[in-house]
Simulated scan of single mutants.
Amino acid sequence: MNKLAGKRVLIVEDEMLVALLIEDFILQIGCEIAGMAMRLEPALDLARTIDIDVAILDINLAGKPSFPVAEMLRERGIPFVFASGYGVAGLEGSGISAPVLQKPFDVSDVRRLLAGVV
Results as ranks from 00 to 15, higher is better:
Asp14Gly: 00
Ile96Trp: 11
Gly35Asn: 02
Asp53Gly: 06
Ile50Val: 12
Met1Leu: 13
Ile96Cys: 12
Leu40Thr: 04
Lys64Glu: 14
Ala19Gln: 10
Asp53Ile: 01
Val9Ser: 02
Val117His: 06
Asp58Tyr: 08
Lys3Cys: 12
Gly85Met: 13
Ser97Lys: 12
Met38Glu: 12
Gly63Pro: 01
Phe25Ala: 06
Asp24Arg: 15
Ile22Glu: 12
Leu27Ala: 14
Arg112Lys: 15
Asp58Thr: 02
Phe82Glu: 04
Ala62Thr: 11
Val100Tyr: 03
Gly77Glu: 10
Glu32Ile: 08
Leu61Ile: 02
Pro79Ala: 09
Val18Gly: 11
Ala83Tyr: 08
Gly85Val: 07
Ala98Trp: 00
Val110Asp: 02
Leu101Glu: 09
Arg8His: 02
Asp51Tyr: 07
Val100Ile: 08
Ala19Val: 06
Ser97Pro: 04
Lys7His: 05
Glu92Thr: 13
Ala115Arg: 10
Ala115Gly: 13
Lys7Phe: 05
Asp24Ile: 03
Leu4Met: 09
Gly85Trp: 12
Gly77Phe: 07
Ala70Gln: 00
Ala62Asn: 12
Leu27Gln: 13
Asp53Phe: 03
Leu20Ala: 11
Glu13Arg: 05
Val54Asn: 00
Val118Ile: 14
Leu4Phe: 05
Asn2Pro: 06
Ser94Asn: 09
Val118Arg: 12
Ala43Cys: 09
Met38Pro: 00
Leu4Ala: 08
Gly6Cys: 08
Glu41Cys: 03
Met16Tyr: 15
Ile11His: 01
Ala89Leu: 14
Val54Gly: 05
